[in-house]
Write a protein that binds this DNA or RNA. Structure first.
Lengths: 133, 133
DNA sequence: TTGCGTGCAAAGGTTTTGCATGGCA
DNA sequence: TGCCATGCAAAACCTTTGCACGCAA
């Protein structure tokens, strides 16, 4: 059972483009524009419908960009499902946290509040070293 | 100097409604609809313009609701600016973290990554004790 | 008077939807 | 054949903007 199977040319193109841009936050129109440059013309409706499908399958994560005023989609890297991330509010850079840094906090919160943290959804925001200057 | 001063009836109504709903994520249309029920009819443009102003003043925080496909606005409780929060993904409950729980992590991350966490924007998501059952 | 705030309507952008068509099993 | 995906165009939203008017200092 392969969740990522695609039967049509359009879905193949869309997914390939997303996979090539795993680190980016893509809007539906980003994808449309790129495929258009390659002389492919899926309709914007097709893109939206397929993106929502991939979100439901857990292959993509949906976010929102205030700058672009549009929904953005991001590839869910399964290798990242077991650790936490820092995200710089200025440049958008993602830093992968080593587990030892967080495991203390997890157990403290578990003991004190009986609360189980979701490390896929949780992101620690702040300012990275480069942007401090 | 009072940042929250308002000179007009419209701004007064809008801000009052937001203050009554401090714990909620309101859209511009939520506010419009509520005031409409009270026979007040500020224009939607006025609401958007005032909300953006309050965001700039740091009185509101702007978010985005995927469900509503619209920007949402939330009152910034200044008493909360110096600690972190847990938010239950199921019931939406907010738990205020005592500082001692987090201070270790802050300094570890600062030392190891030279990254300064923003405790206003950062929210730890997960499942609370009541929703586990 | 001067400067803001407002309402209205229009415009701009994103996202969704209905329907007919087309392709794959 | 039957089902699902697609394209197209329209519609439905949300949000912003221009302009004229109104109100308060």
């Amino acid at each position: 059972m392969n969740n990522i199977e695609y039967k049509t040319k359009q879905r193949k193109m869309i997914l390939e483009y997303i996979e090539k841009n795993k680190d980016k936050q893509l809007t539906a129109y980003d994808i449309l524009q790129n495929l258009y440059l390659k002389d492919e013309n899926p309709s914007i409706a097709t893109i939206y419908r397929y993106l929502e499908k991939l979100v439901k399958q857990g292959i993509l994560k949906k976010n929102y960009s205030e700058k672009k005023n549009a929904a953005t989609f991001e590839y869910v890297n399964k290798a990242c499902a077991n650790h936490y991330h820092l995200k710089c509010e200025k440049c958008g850079r993602i830093i992968h946290l080593s587990n030892e840094v967080f495991s203390d906090l997890e157990s403290k919160i578990d003991k004190k509040y009986d609360f189980e943290i979701d490390n896929v959804k949780t992101v620690l925001y702040g300012i990275c070293n480069e942007c401090k200057n």
